[in-house]
């Protein structure tokens, strides 16, 4: 078996999760940009596959590469605002382009709401909660992937991310209720109760 066979075999079980993780991580990016991140991450993983000593550690290793590649793309975007440099053509640009893997038009409302909530998080918070929820990594594994010194950093990061998402998603739910086509009747107990619940969820208090 060649190297590409080995790599393909190792990638296959985690392929779907890796793509979902990458797309959610790039929640603020377009599908094309998310595909660029994924392509670079897969290329790096393939080129460095020989250096992976323990094949059982393939999944955290792959997700770490995706995370690092995402951070490097974010950094590149940041510096491009100040240094709009034209880089000379490299050999990598002649590499075959990865085929499209993400839907260009997402229609699922729940996914859209979740991605919007994710985009309100910081990059590290988003990576932490996605690694926890989608990839199913433990706190220790996330600590290793995010190269943090203590597990409590990851715990507080996850807690903060969850709180932010909950607030954002509650607000989105409330907004959705307001914009619904349902026309409330005066004295409609159910409607008034829903409004009250939404208000409490948003403000945390009842006037």
């Amino acid at each position: 078996m060649s190297l590409v066979d080995h790599f393909s075999e190792a990638l296959k079980p985690h392929y779907s999760e890796a793509l979902t993780y990458c797309r959610s991580l790039c929640a603020r990016f377009s599908a094309e940009e998310a595909e660029d991140v994924l392509q670079q991450a897969l290329l790096k993983a393939y080129e460095k596959f020989n250096t992976l000593r323990d094949p059982t550690r393939f999944k955290p290793w792959l997700f770490q590469i995706i995370t690092n590649e995402f951070h490097s793309v974010v950094r590149r975007h940041f510096w491009k605002r100040f240094l709009p440099l034209e880089f000379p053509a490299t050999d990598d640009e002649n590499l075959p382009k990865m085929p499209p893997v993400y839907d260009r038009a997402e229609s699922d409302e729940t996914k859209l709401m979740l991605r919007q909530a994710l985009s309100s998080l910081s990059d590290k918070e988003r990576a932490a909660i996605l690694l926890f929820e989608i990839a199913g990594f433990s706190i220790e594994e996330i600590q290793h992937i995010q190269q943090e010194k203590s597990a409590s950093t990851i715990k507080s990061r996850l807690s903060r991310a969850r709180r932010k998402m909950r607030r954002r998603m509650t607000a989105q739910e409330s907004q959705r209720l307001h914009t619904t086509t349902f026309k409330p009747l005066i004295g409609d107990i159910e409607h008034e109760t829903l409004q009250l619940v939404a208000k409490v969820n948003i403000d945390g208090r009842l006037d």
Binding site: S8, Y15, L42, L95, P99, V101
Partner: peptide, 23 residues
């Protein structure tokens, strides 16, 4: 779950073919 249920396995063959082209 809505997010986790995203199934990308259908595109694996394309990606695998691309990796082989790269190789």
């Amino acid at each position: 779950s809505a997010l986790k249920n995203d199934d990308h396995r259908a595109s694996f063959d394309q990606t695998d073919a691309w990796l082989r082209q790269v190789s």
